[in-house]
């Protein structure tokens, strides 16, 4: 074989050989719209939900939790309607995961009230003695950093103006700090007094969890 004595030619041919499968199964689908369809029912994350999502990424929740329900009978029974491609149009990065040490979370939104999440995040073991999920109570002790929220949403192309972002943050803050907030008691139990009037990382991650799988319900209903 002649190319065995021509390293550069050899490298070029190798590159061509590995690019065939790459182009066919990865590059071409990038340009086919049906790979990642969009639906008017599926809305982008609000600034606070997005911050919560970034905390989910930072803490590596995806190392234990998946976010794709497969179209299998027992799986739909356990978690709910199977996942549709439209749901992920605003997900950069995707968070489907590859390991299910904990349950799938793609349908977690609305499954429990916020109060449940405050207690659960604070100490999973208090709710389920044998759970191996790490406790995340310290998240309630961190004020949410929103200094990059606008920049983040604009990089992701969510189309919010700076004042949209500010309003989203303010309205989430006033919702969870209101006297009438249904989960006020459990929130105050985990949040230190000096932060009770402010948004914490815990508030944001719960806002994110509550968003998961909600929009797709409307999409399915409209079908």
């Amino acid at each position: 074989m002649g190319i065995n004595s021509k390293p550069v030619v050899f490298a070029v041919i190798s590159a061509a050989v590995i690019l065939v499968g790459t182009v066919a199964t990865v590059f071409i689908p990038l340009f086919i719209p049906s790979t990642q369809p969009v639906s008017p029912y599926v809305k982008p994350y609000t600034a606070v939900e997005l911050e919560g999502r970034d905390i989910y990424i930072r803490e590596g929740c995806n190392n234990c939790h998946t976010q794709t329900v497969r179209p299998l009978r027992t799986e739909v029974l356990r978690y709910g309607e199977y996942s549709k491609p439209e749901e992920f149009a605003y997900d950069r990065p995707f968070l489907w995961g590859s390991r299910r040490t904990g349950p799938d979370l793609n349908r977690i939104g609305g499954k429990y009230p916020d109060s449940w999440h405050y207690s659960h995040m604070q100490s999973p073991q208090r709710l389920f003695q044998k759970s191996n999920m790490p406790p995340y109570g310290w998240m309630a002790k961190n004020r949410l950093d929103t200094s990059n929220s606008f920049k983040k949403t604009s990089i992701l192309g969510y189309g919010y103006t700076e004042s949209d972002v500010k309003n989203q943050i303010d309205s989430c803050r006033s919702r969870v700090t209101a006297e009438s907030y249904a989960s006020k008691e459990s929130r105050n139990q985990v949040t230190p007094p000096e932060l009770q009037k402010d948004l914490t990382e815990m508030d944001a991650i719960i806002a994110y969890l509550q968003k998961l799988g909600r929009d797709v319900k409307n999409m399915e209903a409209a079908k």
């Binding site: 790459t22 199964t25 990865v26 689908p29 990038l30 790979t35 990642q36 491609p85 749901e87 992920f88 149009a89 605003y90 997900d91 950069r92 990065p93 995707f94 489907w96 983040k152 990089i155 992701l156």
Partner: peptide, 16 residues
């Protein structure tokens, strides 16, 4: 940072 790919495409690129 945020990846340039979204959702299903990001999954496909990532697992490739």
């Amino acid at each position: 940072s945020y990846t340039v790919y979204s959702g299903t495409n990001d999954a496909n690129v990532e697992w490739w």
